[in-house]
Each structure stands twice: as structure tokens, then as C-alpha cells.
Amino acid sequence: MAPKPAQKALGPIRRSFAPWLDPSAVPLIRFENVVKRFGEFTAVDDISIDIHSREFFSLLGPSGCGKTTLMRMLAGFEEPTSGRITLAGQDLAGTPPYRRPVNMMFQSYALFPHMTVEQNIGFGLKQEGMPKPEIAERVKDMLRLVKLDAFAARKPHQLSGGQRQRVALARSLAKKPKVLLLDEPLGALDKKLREETQFELMDLQMELGLTFLIVTHDQEEAMTMSDRIAVMNHGKLVQVATPGEIYEQPNSRYVADFIGDINLFETKVTGAADGRLTLACADASAELLAAGDAATPVGADVALAVRPEKVRISLEPPPATATNVLKGEIWDIAYLGDWSVFLVKLENSEKVVRVSRANMTRTEETPIAWDDKVFVHFAPDAGVLLTA
């Protein structure tokens, strides 16, 4: 029997660029069964990834998951215990870092405090022996690119955090690498500046046509900037997909829980009909309905994962046509300006459901308050079924 095609995610696509869907496309970077051990500890466990030219690719995961180690092996600062890493078809084994067509930008920026901005940017070019007129021209181009023309003569301590970050970026780009590696590049910036810089990096990457590989533990950062994301955990690759697919079609409880907020209902399949599954859930007063088919056997244990923004909440009972209706009590409320988040403790259960609602108006005639009795409900196709 032919495998069932994957359901398309509802998430947005940043740009019409998807070489990974073309079987004839040749990846720029290839990790093949890469393993890295430090003594008895396995930091990277049999990972294979293809990254394409001009792709903005993120390695995402918690601290200690192996993402930085994977990047450092590509940069040449670590050697794989086994497996192979190729770049543009060339096996990188034994190639020292300074001979690899990659450059790495570190979280600390590592700027020379005694040098000016232009001297910092041109340092690598000077080390390579590039003629002074060419260095001056390249540095001028980089200053224009990162919008720091007026700051060329300043020292790092005379710059803001965002400006120092752009100097480090310009220095990394000055040697025109095939691949730019960014290790938590925005971690030192405040939230507002970090958000602004994310869009600047996206625009810059597209303008230059370079391949960016970023390591981050910030889900929002990866979701905003990436063409694709590789989610890692304990040295293993868990899922590689676009941001929309990662969010809307996670392949496991781990991914669903790690990316954004999620409500997980542990259930058992009790029936299937008309493209829907009925699910028994100990935390619900009635059976739940989910989109699915008979390929999921009756009696199977599955988790129904539902994002908070796909759950509706009201003080009054929903229409009779509503599905997956649950009763509960407001346990807590977080007002975030653009969104309000409600934590609802379900009736006759310890289960707490998270509901996110956009604040579309400035005022509300009957606002939902603490301790209110409420109804929450969601459509059968609002969630995804997970077995892993």
C-alpha cells in the first residue's frame, strides 16, 4: 500500500524557496551519519542533514543537545568521531578552520577593544595579506551593508550592543564565506532590538545570497528567520522541517511541547468514521473528536496536541454544533497586550488547558475574570495526533 501523503501545514511560508523538495537539487552542506563523542559522552549521535545553498537553516534545541558541537565540526574546531561532513562536494576531514570557506560569528562578538570599527572589520582581510586598497574598499562595502558608515572610527566601547553585533557580523562577512555560521548571535541583545535584528539578518542574507547556519535555543528566533529548522535533543535529530510544519505538524510530543505552547490530551482511540476518530480521554467529560482515519487502530494510545490559539473560550455555552466542548474554571490570566492567555482548570480533573485569545478591541462588555466558570471548545481538525 502506498504511504499516505503528509498533510500540508497551515503555517506561513517566508519565501518561495524550497530546494529540499527537488530530488535533483545538490545540497551545499551534507552531514552524513556524524557522531561526536567526548570520552564516554555522545554529544552528537548519528546525525544526517542536507543544507542547501542560500538557505537560512537553524539548529534548535535546549542547552547540551549537541547543536553547537555540530556547528563547530563544520567550522573545523572539532573533528567527528565518525561520519562525514562535506561542503560543495568536498570532504572537510583534515581541513583546518582557516582553509574552510566558512566564517563563524560568536555570541560574545570577540571584537578587539583597541581597534576601530573599520580595523575590526578589516582584520581578517589583513591577516590574509589582501592589498590595502582592496581592504579599504571591502570594509567600506561592509560598513554600508550594516549601516555603520558614520561609526567607522569609533572603538567598540563607544557602540551600543546592537551596533557591536553588526560590527561582528560585518567582520564575519568581509571574507565573503560560502557559509556564515552564527552561534547564538542575538543572545546579548534586549528583546526589542533582538526582534529588529532578526528581520535585518533575514534581509541581509537574501541580499547577499549566502547560506546562513544559526545555532539557537530561542524558538521564536528560529521560527522567525529560518527556511528550515532542525530540532535536536540529547544529540539526536528529532525533526527537520519548515517553521510552519514544525509548529502545525510536530512529529512527536517533544517537538510539540518544545516549540511554542501546547495542550496535550492523552487519549485512546475508540472508533473511526467519516475521516474522524473518537478518543477517550480521562480529563474530558465526553469523548473527543479528531481528524484522522482508520489507519490509526482502535485501542491505540495517542496524544491529541492542540495549540492554545485554536481553542475557543466563552462564558456562555457554545452552539450545539460545537465539538470537543469542555467545562472549567479560570485558574489564571495573563494579559500580554496583543494577546490574553487564560489557564482553565477542567471540571472534575486536574488538567489545565491553556487558551490564547487576541485582544481585538480595547474594551470588552463581559470580560472573563478569575474564578469564572467557562466553556472551552475546539474543532476536530484543530489538533494533531502524536504517537511518539
Rank of each mutant, 00 (worst) to 15 (best):
A43S: 14
A93L: 10
G66T: 05
A25D: 08
I49F: 03
S48R: 10
L87H: 00
T81D: 02
G76D: 06
P23G: 10
R84E: 12
A88K: 09
R37D: 13
L28C: 06
A43T: 05
A43D: 04
R84P: 01
S24D: 13
P62I: 11
A75I: 13
F57D: 00
L28H: 06
T81H: 06
V34C: 08
F38Y: 15
H52A: 13
T86R: 11
G89F: 13
G89L: 12
I47A: 03
D91H: 09
S48P: 07
V35N: 08
H52R: 14
C65K: 01
G64V: 07
I49L: 14
F38K: 10
K67M: 10
D46L: 04
E32A: 12
F77Y: 12
P80D: 08
T81R: 07
A88Q: 10
V44I: 10
G61V: 04
S24H: 09
P80C: 11
P27K: 05
T42E: 15
A43W: 00
D50A: 14
S82K: 12
G76P: 01
I49P: 03
A93D: 09
D45E: 10
V26I: 15
G66R: 00
A88R: 07
A93H: 11
L60N: 06
L59S: 03
D45N: 15
A25T: 05
M73W: 03
F77W: 08
S53K: 15
F38A: 12
F56D: 01
S24P: 02
G64A: 11
I29A: 05
F77A: 06
V26S: 11
L28K: 07
E40I: 12
K67Y: 13
R37W: 03
R30Y: 06
F38P: 09
K36T: 08
F38I: 14
A93F: 07
M73L: 12
Q90M: 11
E79V: 12
I49N: 03
H52L: 11
V44E: 01
R72M: 14
M71W: 01
L92A: 02
G83I: 04
G76C: 13
F31T: 00
S63A: 13
A75H: 09
R54I: 07
Q90S: 14
T81C: 03
M71N: 03
V44Y: 02
D50F: 05
M71C: 10
A88H: 07
I47T: 09
K67V: 08
